[in-house]
Amino acid sequence: MEAAVTRNRSFRDFLIYLYRAARAIVLGHAVTLKHLFRRPVTIRYPEEEYHATPWHRTYPALVIDEATRELKCTACMSCERACPPGIIAIERAQGEDKKTYPGEFWIDMLRCMECGICVEVCPFDALEMVPEYKMTAYHPDDGIFDKERLAVVVRGPKTPWPRRKGSYLEGGWPT
């Protein structure tokens, strides 16, 4: 601001500068005043909820098949191989009918970068990104989600993403 005064040497210039500054202040306040009559864009968070887009990617969850009430996942390990930071860990188990299922399924949610690649590669639509964004925990260990924490029931229309057809992911991820 010192520079402002020194650069406007003559008194006439100074007056012009004053006039312009006053005009700018009035204009600025007019803009601010307009906002008294506009709807606020903020929400009061804990009382009001933010509703993210249904296909918002927050974390990958394991889908429960509502008919059989089992996880859709067959422990094919595609997602484990494709996850760029390598944070999915699956232990494959086999039932009596020779069907494989994940005995354990962990995702280190502290290091998940929410890219959604695991969802895209899953050949059985067994993973889904869910728009739940309240994931605070009291201890870092709670950030490692296990099978129970990851399981969700997905109802209604979900992701408009390429699933198995029509993309280069057709038929699953290169294994």
Partner: peptide, 15 residues
């Protein structure tokens, strides 16, 4: 509105 608020503000211009 942005231009009213800032761009053509003489104080901003001088800075």
């Amino acid at each position: 509105e942005y231009h009213d608020l800032l761009s053509y503000n003489p104080i901003f211009a001088v800075r």
